[in-house]
């Protein structure tokens, strides 16, 4: 069934192993096929799944497992360990500059959740004593600036804008200068959604980077993204050098395989997760929790 959870599937496949005393190479292979299908159904990228399965298979058919008294549990442990390793092992935080303001730039595809997340992040960090300034760097999307202003208003955060007739590079630079002058120790730059293959707009981001040298460039990614997540993450990382990922819309019922894909291709940490439309629904990302959520363990 399509909608059966990944965790159930893994449990199902591995339960068969658990009940057996000894594992043959064929047993492992069969179970790994089910793990593979389950991961694919969870939207983990095809190539990432392949590599993952090869790794687990290698370890699982090793002597250590076949001769262990509880080979099934051993395999479950290996799957769990490798998955957690793939998700990253520790929780990542924002690195603040010793010379404020710290500049954070949010980038990503259209509709991923950048503007909302920018507000959320500002609100989140304000609670820990920061004085954030939101910078309206999207001059393209209809009412993008207004959207950020409304969000800023709801959180009681200042929003810097120069309207939509000035280049985003200039806006970003002026925004940081404004922050310096007004004692904001944190600048969060909202940018327009763009396709990773849009050279012109990707160059715009490179120019912003060059101009304001952000301490953190965070890729905002929709948790429902399918196989394409690797292309998006890889190219944004290649062109900009991202420092981390924020995964949005995890309040849905998606399996969230994109989390695995993105980690695997960029090796950059997922720092926060979006858990709703409301502006307080941002949570730190815990790799072990995500792996456990996926595995149901």
């Amino acid at each position: 069934m399509v909608f059966e959870g990944l965790a159930d599937k893994l449990q199902g496949a591995l339960q068969k192993l658990k009940s057996k005393g000894k594992l043959s190479e064929k047993d492992v292979k069969e179970a790994m096929r089910e793990v593979k299908l389950a991961l694919l159904e969870a939207d983990v990228n095809f190539k990432v799944v392949k590599d993952f399965i090869d790794k687990v298979k290698d370890r699982a058919v090793g002597n250590e497992v076949l001769e262990s008294l509880t080979p099934g549990q051993q395999v479950i442990k290996i799957v769990n360990e490798e998955l957690t390793a793939l998700m990253g092992t520790t929780q990542s935080k924002i690195t603040f500059s010793s010379k404020p303001p710290t500049v954070i730039m949010l980038v990503g595809l259209q509709g991923a959740g950048k503007t909302t997340t920018g507000g959320k992040l500002g609100g989140y960090l304000k609670k820990s004593g920061k004085r954030p300034l939101l910078v309206a760097g999207d001059i393209y999307r209809p009412a993008a600036i207004k959207q950020l202003q409304v969000v800023g208003g709801q959180l009681d955060l200042p929003v810097f804008t120069l309207g939509d007739k000035v280049s985003p590079v200039h806006i970003a630079k002026a925004g940081v200068e404004h922050a310096v002058k007004h004692g904001n120790d944190l600048v969060i730059i909202d940018t327009a959604g763009r396709l990773h293959i849009d050279d012109h707009l990707m160059e715009e981001l490179q120019n912003i980077k060059q101009e304001v040298k952000p301490h953190e460039i965070l890729l905002v990614l929709d948790a429902m993204t399918g196989q394409d997540a690797v292309n998006v993450a890889e190219i944004f990382n290649e062109k900009l050098g991202i420092d981390g990922v924020i995964l949005t819309k995890l309040d849905g019922d998606t399996r969230g395989g994109a989390a695995l894909s993105v980690r695997a291709v960029t090796n950059k940490p997922i720092k926060f997760i979006g858990m709703g439309e409301k502006l307080n629904e941002l949570e730190p990302f815990f790799p072990d929790r995500m792996a456990s959520r996926i595995l149901g363990m």
Binding site: V2, F3, E41, A42, D43, L109, G111, D222, M224, T225, G226, Q227, D228, V232, G252, D253, T254, R255, G257, A258
Partner: peptide, 11 residues
């Protein structure tokens, strides 16, 4: 539907 969406689109 967003074409970048994976299997969740079915649900």
């Amino acid at each position: 539907l967003d074409a970048t969406t994976g299997q969740n689109a079915i649900q």
